[in-house]
Design a binder for these strands. Structure first.
Length: 641
RNA sequence: GCCGAUGUAGCUCAGUGGUAGAGCACUUCCUUGGUAAGGAAGAGGUCGCGGGUUCAAUUCCCUUCAUCGGCUCCA
């Protein structure tokens, strides 16, 4: 009996039935079997050691394939579990999957307390066990036997996992002295794992449920050689350098103060400047396409948020109310109810629509203390908010226009790496997390999907991520250290119009509720500037840089000339910073470089004599001498956003 | 909010059961120097806050606050 194997390049070869992918690799080349970690057989990733008994397509997976990597890391999680089990008694294991960069295993440490110091010990043990090149052995097992095994072992977590599995589809994997309930696949043997780094120790709720026991999660990453590990650690170090919290301090953008409160950033002058500049961009952009600017108070009565429906959903994340004359007032956590009241303040005709109300609104949200994160997750925030009230017929063009605005901004800021997500409701949570209008949900989700498809914007759809009042498009971005954030959001609201009794008179003299679009393409100042810091690694484009040109006189003999240069550049609209300190030029340059000021002009005897300036570009070095006029012309183009 | 770690000068960090140190930054003085750190002196800290143990606590213990790594959450 033979089987026909189709390779990715289309080639078809015949092999003896029962041959494994690993054996096939051996027939193709001598070195290949050492690299094969798993096999994609008929589109499904499997152990490379499983016999192939029918015709199949085959792709051999190595470290260079995502499937190879994830199999490698999954096996590494098992290796770590083996090491932990051999070092400590009474450990119970939850789950141990591969993740984007490595793997983790959730464990119940029982009487042991693991600390960071244990990680090194576990790493050593893992290397020792990896060296034994233990094979991963797959074993189909009956549910009864599996239950017996883990009952004997006393691992209630595995027993709980088994409850959800169907008899006849249960497999164990064994390597060395460790057996785990596992679907697989795994690498052929532990010998492939050559470099190991256990990254961190953290708590994680069993099955992600905060009401259940918190287990200890150990994160790790492994590689097939030391070099790759070194490179990876170096990459992490580089990423840390562009962490907005570090840059925010270094470039004097913002600060926190314990007496002010957690999550309440104080914007330093450089940060204040960025805010002004971004706001200028938003106002200009919105003016051009027919938005009106409004302003609303930072607080409102409880009744407003009861009407909007926010209070029951979000009470926990609002600052507690203040009570005056028996009336409760809340700090606003969102601007929408205020804007709705503005819409409702005067009667509206269909001729007035669409109405687009914009405001950089300041909101306060009582985020969990544990979730605060630099500028990316704060408790006071200023949002690039606007609400568009339109008819059903106008919806598509309005929604498209909003998307176009997003793309315009992305172009201005050079944002290429993002993910658009259509966040939908979850039918099983209607009436709880989501407003109970099943048909309207389907209808609006379809409307949004169509706009995205018609505009040719790639997106993915995710359930159970919508706002309570309607579906939304979220723009997902990643922080320097890889954490995922929603940068901006674009939402459809079919509920609040009715709740606020917002009406317009249509052509037929009938009252109708408008559809409301909530949008915040520039996010909040906090998150957007946090993102920009990481995006640009602190090197803001010229138009946005708080200080554009550092004036660096070589000695105070040239101060008068330097001041003349500074005031001429200021007249031409540039933002200059004069360094009058009695420091050497090398020191002044260094300080300007550290502050990432885009241009430096060195001014000394030579310059004063021929009426020029020497220009140095940040990160590049000396770019030669210019007259002030020529320099201004040089910067003109770059200074446009 | 939960698990874990951390908290010493503006910043980065040493250190100790007998009330503290470095580098950078800051102030003053000297230096007037040509493309990433010139020199000297000085000033600056209730060792996060509160409590306990002790003759004595910055150090050991507890509480609390904040930050960090995760989890949960995220309008």
């Amino acid at each position: 009996m033979s089987v026909k194997i189709t390779f990715p390049d289309g080639a078809i070869k015949e092999f003896q039935s029962g041959i494994t992918a690993l054996e096939i690799a051996g027939q193709l080349s001598n070195s290949l079997p050492k690299k094969v970690l798993a096999a994609e057989i008929n589109g499904e990733i499997q152990d490379a050691t499983r016999p192939i008994t029918g015709d199949a397509t085959l792709k051999l997976l190595t470290w260079n394939d995502n499937g190879g990597k994830s199999t490698f890391w999954h096996s590494s999680a098992h290796l770590m579990a083996e090491a932990i089990e051999s070092l400590y008694k009474g450990i119970k294991f939850g789950i141990g999957p591969p993740i984007e960069n490595g793997f983790y295993y959730d464990i119940d440490t029982g009487h042991n307390t693991l600390t960071i110091n244990d990680l090194e010990k576990i790493e050593k043990k893992m290397l020792e066990l990896a060296n034994q090149k233990s094979e991963f052995k797959r074993k189909a097992i009956s549910k009864g036997d599996a239950i017996a095994y883990f009952t004997e072992k006393g691992d209630e977590y595995k027993l709980e996992l088994l409850e959800g599995l169907e008899d006849g589809h249960i497999t164990f994997y064994e390597q060395g002295g460790f057996t785990d309930l596992c679907r697989g696949p795994h690498i052929p043997n532990t010998g492939h794992i050559k470099a190991i780094k256990l990254m961190k120790l953290a708590g994680a709720y069993w099955r992600g449920d905060e009401k259940r026991k918190q287990l200890t999660r150990i994160y790790g990453v492994t590689f097939p050689n030391q070099q790759e590990l070194d490179d990876y650690l170096k990459m992490l170090e580089e990423a840390e350098k562009r962490d907005h919290r570090k840059l925010g301090q270094q470039l004097e953008i913002y600060t926190f103060d314990e007496e002010v409160g957690p999550g309440l950033p104080l914007w330093l002058p450089n940060g204040g400047f960025l805010i002004e500049k971004i706001e200028e961009l938003a106002k200009q952009t919105e003016d051009e396409v027919g938005y009106s600017r409004v302003r609303t108070p930072h607080i409102a009565k409880e009744a407003l948020y009861i009407r909007s429906g926010h209070l029951p959903y979000y009470k926990e994340s609002m600052f507690p109310p203040m009570e005056l004359d028996n009336v409760k007032y809340y700090l606003k956590a969102m601007n929408c109810p205020h804007h709705h009241k503005i819409f409702g303040a005067m009667p509206k005709s269909y001729k007035d629509l669409p109405i687009r109300l914009a405001e950089y609104g300041t909101c306060y949200r009582y985020e969990d203390s544990g979730s605060l994160f630099g500028l990316m997750r704060v408790r006071s925030l200023q949002m690039n908010d606007a609400h568009i009230y339109c008819t059903k017929e106008q919806f598509e063009s309005e929604f498209r226009a909003v998307n176009a605005m997003y793309l315009k901004y992305f172009k201005i800021f050079g944002i290429e790496k993002y993910k658009m997500r259509l966040s939908k409701h979850d039918p099983s949570k209607l009436g709880q997390k989501y407003i109970n209008e099943p048909e309207l949900w389907i209808e609006t989700e379809e409307m949004v999907r169509n706009v995205l498809i018609n505009s040719g914007i790639p997106f993915e759809e995710v359930q159970d991520e919508a706002a309570f009042y309607g579906p939304k498009i979220d723009i997902q971005i990643y922080s320097a250290i890889g954490r995922e954030f929603t940068l901006a959001t674009n939402q459809v609201d079919f509920a609040q119009g009715k709740r606020f009794n917002l009406k317009y008179i249509n052509k037929d003299n009938q009252e109708e509720f408008p559809i409301i679009i909530h949008r915040a393409p520039l996010s909040t100042h906090e998150r957007f500037i946090g993102f920009l810091l990481e995006h640009y690694a602190g090197n803001f484009p010229l138009w946005l840089a708080p200080k554009q040109i550092a004036i660096l006189p070589i000695s105070d003999k040239f101060m008068t000339y330097a001041e003349g240069v500074a005031s001429k550049l200021k007249e031409k609209g540039f933002r200059v910073k004069m360094d009058e300190r009695a420091e050497k030029i090398g020191k002044k340059i260094r300080d300007a470089e550290v502050m990432k000021i885009p241009y430096m002009t060195v001014i000394g005897e030579k310059e004063e004599l021929n009426g020029q300036i020497s220009v140095r570009k940040h990160g590049k070095g000396d770019i030669g001498s210019f007259s002030i006029e020529d320099f201004a012309v040089l910067l003109q183009e770059e200074n446009k956003r």
